[in-house]
């Protein structure tokens, strides 16, 4: 990496409207060179459109996209120094794995010997050495995913775009690929821009995450900051469990009816008879349901005076095992109460 602070991709007031539908609406942000950047949001929030604007499959209806300082408006996908890993992989079914990986090099007229050597090398990096002669149809979903990654990376793009690349894989494989993707990104040092609707993926891999909603960015921050200090109720709810508190209870806790939130693992769950600590914020309720999850247990507590909170307790100790219908006391440290900008 030449300079950690140089900008790989920048959006300046970028909009992409389809008639009255504002898929992307006046969005501005910078992605740093070498960064693992996630665009997180529900479907239809504009994150994929932003990716396609960078790849060149879409043109902005307003504003400008720049890649490494160069305005790319009007430049077709094949003249941009970015490559994409597609959601359904889009491997060429009539070519072997090696031909797929070497496609970009073949188009750029790299001599055959060098092309094959680089493709083989890249297959090695994604742990698919020896699979070069197979057809995509002879591979498993996880293997196809790796071929798609190799096919994009072999061209040494300055930016790699990944469009929900793990969406079609099962949970175990997805977690394994998250670790590998992160490792590969560190090794090649290329900027990764990763689109996902899975908050777990975004948090586990990214240096920074932009949370999209209705074509705009709600918040852009590091995973920890996003989780611990969400700026809006939407971000709090989309990244983690929302646990929204409003109305009278919010007023008692904060003095205003503005909704607030507290993360489930920050809440202490005690029998009702135990006195609450003086520095904590306390509410009472009854257990309305219990979800045993192995490593931890999720309790849903119906609060006195309405509302519900989810509490997540690690199954470290069994000194207190509340059962459904038990009266309990919840408390948390005041600093863990999350307030949102109005």
């Amino acid at each position: 990496m030449a300079n950690g602070e140089s900008i790989a991709v920048s959006f300046r007031n970028v909009s992409r409207h389809y008639g009255a539908v504002k898929a992307v609406d006046d969005v501005s942000f910078d992605i740093k060179d070498g960064e693992f950047f996630a665009m997180l949001g529900p479907s239809g929030s504009g994150k994929t459109t932003c990716l396609r604007l960078i790849a060149g499959f879409e043109q902005p209806t307003g504003g400008a996209v720049a890649i490494h300082g160069q305005d790319v408006t009007g430049i077709p996908p094949y003249d941009r120094d970015v490559n994409t890993v597609f959601q359904d992989y889009a491997l060429f079914p009539h070519m072997t794995v090696l031909e797929n990986v070497g496609y970009g090099l073949m188009i750029r007229k790299v001599p055959k010997a060098e092309r094959q050597q680089r493709a083989e090398e890249m297959l090695g990096m994604v742990a698919l050495s020896g699979f070069g002669g197979r057809k995509p149809s002879q591979l498993s979903g996880g293997q196809r995913q790796r071929v798609a990654l190799a096919r994009a990376l072999v061209n040494r793009p300055s930016v790699l775009l990944l469009d929900e690349p793990l969406g079609a894989l099962d949970l175990k494989l997805r977690e394994q690929m998250q670790v590998e993707l992160k490792a590969i990104q560190r090794r090649v040092g290329i900027t990764f821009i990763y689109v996902t609707h899975d908050q777990g993926e975004a948090l586990s891999m990214s240096d920074r995450v932009a949370v999209f909603n209705h074509g705009r960015i709600e918040q852009m921050a590091s995973p920890a900051e996003l989780y611990e200090r969400p700026k809006t109720a939407f971000v709090a709810g989309f990244v983690g469990i929302s646990n929204l508190i409003d109305g009278a209870l919010a007023e008692r806790l904060t003095g205003s009816a503005q909704p607030v939130s507290v993360r489930p693992e920050k809440i202490h769950l005690e029998p009702a008879r135990v006195a609450a600590p003086a520095d904590g914020q306390t509410v009472s309720g009854t257990i309305s349901s219990i979800l045993y999850l192995g490593a931890n247990t999720r309790y849903l507590v119906a609060l006195e005076g309405g509302g519900e909170l989810t509490v997540l307790l690690q199954n470290r100790d069994t000194h207190f095992e509340p059962t459904q219908g038990d009266a309990v006391r919840l408390w948390w440290e005041a600093r863990h109460l999350m307030r949102f900008a109005s």
Partner: peptide, 18 residues
């Protein structure tokens, strides 16, 4: 055929004819 095949080809540097 996946419609993304054409996009994938363009993304990898191929123009319409290629």
């Amino acid at each position: 055929s996946s419609p993304a095949l054409v996009e994938a080809s363009m993304d990898l540097g191929a123009n319409s004819f290629q």
